[in-house]
Simulated assay, not measured.
Amino acid sequence: MTSQRLRIVPSQFVVEHLPNSTFPEDDEWIALVRAPEGLTVIREAPPWADGERWKGFYGDAAHGLDQPGMLAALVGPLAAAGIPVFVASTYHADLVLVPDHRLDDAATTLREAGHRIAD
């Protein structure tokens, strides 16, 4: 298992599906994924946003793209605990989102799996 040092991103996020868009109308997004069925947008949750809010774990140290198992070491324990995830990967690390109301459960699960979470 690959132990990682993580931090909790202070923002809350929303994940949106825009079925008829190829690019959002604003530039307030964190990550975009374009697929045949539309555009998926991750953005900081504005106060008026409806729907599920997500919190993110992000690695404190960059890891190489050729290092296997980094994402699996995070999502595996979360899946085993029944905690949903949504992931956006960057060049340096993975942003692992969990539902806001499951943040404490997720942090406990990741610690029990050997990861360190900065306070």
Rank of each mutant, 00 (worst) to 15 (best):
L95V: 06
G82T: 06
W54M: 01
K55Q: 12
E16H: 04
A49W: 04
A35C: 10
N20G: 02
E16C: 03
W29S: 02
L95N: 03
I83K: 09
V85S: 03
A72D: 04
Q12W: 09
S89M: 05
S21E: 14
S11N: 12
L65D: 05
T40K: 01
L65Q: 09
L39K: 10
P10V: 12
R53I: 05
I30K: 10
I30H: 13
E16I: 05
T22I: 13
V87C: 04
V96Q: 00
A49D: 11
E44D: 08
V85T: 15
D94S: 00
A35P: 03
R53L: 13
P46F: 06
S89I: 04
M70L: 14
W29Y: 15
D94E: 08
E28Q: 14
D66A: 14
W29V: 03
G38P: 03
N20D: 09
F57S: 02
P77Q: 07
W29D: 05
E37R: 15
F57E: 00
D50E: 15
S11D: 15
A31R: 06
L71Q: 00
T90K: 01
V33Y: 11
S21A: 15
G56F: 00
D27E: 08
L71G: 00
P46I: 11
R34G: 11
I83A: 07
G82H: 06
D26I: 01
V96A: 00
L97I: 04
R34Y: 12
N20V: 01
V85E: 05
L71I: 04
Q67T: 13
V41T: 04
H63S: 03
P77W: 06
Y91N: 04
P68V: 15
L65H: 08
P24T: 03
V15H: 07
A73M: 11
V14R: 02
A61E: 15
I83Y: 10
H92D: 15
G64E: 02
L74M: 13
Q12T: 14
A73E: 10
P19R: 11
D27C: 03
E28M: 12
L97S: 03
V75R: 07
A61C: 04
W29H: 13
D26L: 04
G59P: 01
F57D: 01
P19W: 11
P10K: 12
G38H: 06
S89A: 14
G51K: 12
M70E: 07
L18M: 13
R43G: 05
D27L: 05
D60E: 15
A72Y: 05
A88H: 07
I42F: 05
H92R: 14
W54I: 02
Q12K: 14
W54V: 02
S21Y: 12
V33D: 10
L71P: 00
A79V: 04
V75M: 08
M70G: 03
G76P: 08
E25Q: 09
V41I: 15
V41H: 04
L39V: 15
P19A: 11
D50N: 10
N20P: 00
P84W: 02
A93H: 02
H92W: 10
E28H: 13
